[in-house]
């Protein structure tokens, strides 16, 4: 076990825990600390090798460990840095971290289209949340944004490359959850893009999970496309006897009246899928008779939409049905 202090709060965590996960554990024990958890746009606990890329989770290590108390010279990615006994970390308390994070958010939004009003992810988009909490009101970017054509990658998944933040989660998902990855990242730098092998499309039992892991609206469900705004649908927990041995059939149904508009996996408080679901559950079972309803689901992830106005994320409110969406004030010029 290792003792770690994050923003002045001490906790003991198992050896090998990352700083980010230690912060999450603290928040699970003390919900009032959830605002102290560094935001994570690329790390995904269920995906091996994920993290380290987006740099939103940077923190400052002011004391390395009991043995070697020297501070770390640079900010570190909390999702990929393991705690040491006696380590002291600053997240919210460090002006340097806040400044760097603001920079990262600005970088992430630089080329991101402001098409939230027509994006199916709006309302459950991590970049929206992040921009709301850490972003500036105005952009300092005065150039044309980078654009790509919208693409179908498979008959169920739509790719809006303009919105992609290159977190690599979908690549890891395809590697680790599906049988054979047929998409990946081609080119490099700011011209890198998600693409499939020529004439191939994403088509296998678990491919739909790339939609759920995508933190933004780059990968969306074609069967749900433009059907409704997320916040106008009511989420219900439901399950069915799924015959796919790797799927437990536990899902969330997003309903309007008695219509099932969308099926997704269940996500935990950190926005991560609890268990991955198969494509049959996700795309083909859209009638109520297919499912055993468990009851309404509280969406308890912090979100920018809450009761028609933005709440500070620290007084974490529960997002329930029929909330309305407010467009960010002073939205960026395009």
């Amino acid at each position: 076990m290792a003792k770690v202090t994050i923003d002045g709060h001490l906790m003991e965590v198992p050896d090998g825990t990352t700083i980010l996960n230690a912060a999450r554990m603290m928040a699970e024990h003390h919900p009032e600390l959830s605002a102290n958890v560094p935001p994570a746009m690329c790390y995904y606990s269920k995906l091996e090798g994920s993290g380290g890329k987006c740099r939103t989770c940077l923190v400052q290590v002011t004391k390395g460990s009991e043995k070697d108390p020297r501070p770390m010279p640079k900010l570190v990615a909390s999702c990929r840095t393991t705690v040491m006994d006696g380590m002291e970390v600053q997240n919210k308390l460090s002006p340097q971290v806040q400044d760097a994070r603001k920079g990262v958010v600005e970088f992430l939004l630089l080329n991101h289209p402001l098409d939230c009003p027509v994006c199916d992810q709006a309302g459950e988009c991590h970049l929206q949340d992040l921009g709301y909490e850490h972003g500036s009101q105005n952009t300092r970017y005065e150039f044309k944004r980078r654009t790509f054509e919208v693409e179908d990658i498979g008959d169920k998944v739509k790719l809006h490359m303009n919105r992609c933040i290159l977190c690599y989660r979908c690549v890891f998902t395809a590697n680790q959850i599906t049988e054979g990855r047929v998409h990946g990242i081609i080119n490099r730098g700011d011209h890198a893009e998600i693409s499939t092998y020529i004439h191939q499309s994403i088509d296998n039992d678990f491919s739909g999970n790339v939609i759920d892991v995508c933190p933004v609206g780059a990968l969306t469900d074609k069967t749900f496309r433009f059907k409704s705004r997320v916040w106008n649908t009511n989420p219900y927990n439901a399950h069915r006897e799924c015959t796919n041995p790797k799927c437990n059939g536990h899902v969330v149904l997003w309903m309007a009246g008695n219509d099932i508009l969308r099926v997704t996996a269940r996500k935990d408080q950190w926005g991560e899928v609890e268990s991955f679901i198969c494509n049959e559950c996700r795309f083909d079972k859209k009638s109520l008779g297919d499912w055993i309803l468990e009851g309404p689901r509280k969406v308890d992830r912090h979100s920018v939409i809450s009761g028609g106005h933005y709440n500070s994320l620290s007084d974490k409110k529960v997002l329930t049905k029929s909330t309305t969406f407010a467009v960010m004030e002073g939205s960026k010029k395009d």
Partner: peptide, 16 residues
């Protein structure tokens, strides 16, 4: 041109 594009600051910042 040579950034691999993994990290947001390098990917976006160099182009800017």
């Amino acid at each position: 041109h040579e950034s691999c594009g993994q990290c947001s600051p390098c990917r976006e910042g160099t182009g800017w």
